[in-house]
């Protein structure tokens, strides 16, 4: 069966290496140290007061539903600057089965061209 030795083996990729078990051990140890350090901090706060409300620059809190940032608004900065590529890709994805087959034929044709048959 598998010996303990094998479990500690370093995973060698030929050009690099990575030993997850030892990383995990180190992680756990450092976690404990930091957890103890963190334990010195103050743990209390006043539950249910204005303290626990979300900071909105002093504006009144609206209902939760409208405060949840929807997923389609996430990564605005990225989608904004990559708009051209996203729009191009969207226009390819028509959802039409005929187009799916067309792409298959195109890929086959391109490969034929590459291999030099046609």
């Amino acid at each position: 069966m598998i010996s303990i030795d094998e479990l500690f083996n370093t995973f060698n990729t030929g050009n690099g290496f990575w030993n997850p078990v030892l990383w995990l051990i180190a992680f756990v140890i450092i976690f404990l140290i930091i957890y103890i350090i963190r334990g010195f901090g103050n743990n209390s706060y006043k539950k249910g007061t204005g303290q626990t409300q979300v900071f909105l620059s002093g504006n009144p809190e609206s209902d939760f539903e409208s405060m949840h940032v929807k997923s389609s608004n996430l990564y605005w900065g990225w989608t904004e600057s990559m708009k051209w590529i996203i729009d191009a890709l969207k226009s390819i994805h028509t959802g039409n089965v005929s187009d799916y087959v067309l792409w298959f034929v195109i890929v086959m044709g391109v490969l034929f061209l590459f291999v030099g048959l046609i």
Partner: peptide, 26 residues
């Protein structure tokens, strides 16, 4: 910061909220 109160807002998912800084530092 260690002396100050450690507020967890009521909108937050508390266990993720508390664990994230710890994991990040470690």
């Amino acid at each position: 910061l260690f002396v100050k109160e450690n507020i967890v807002p009521e909108n937050a998912v508390d266990w993720v909220f508390n664990l994230a800084p710890l994991i990040g530092l470690v």
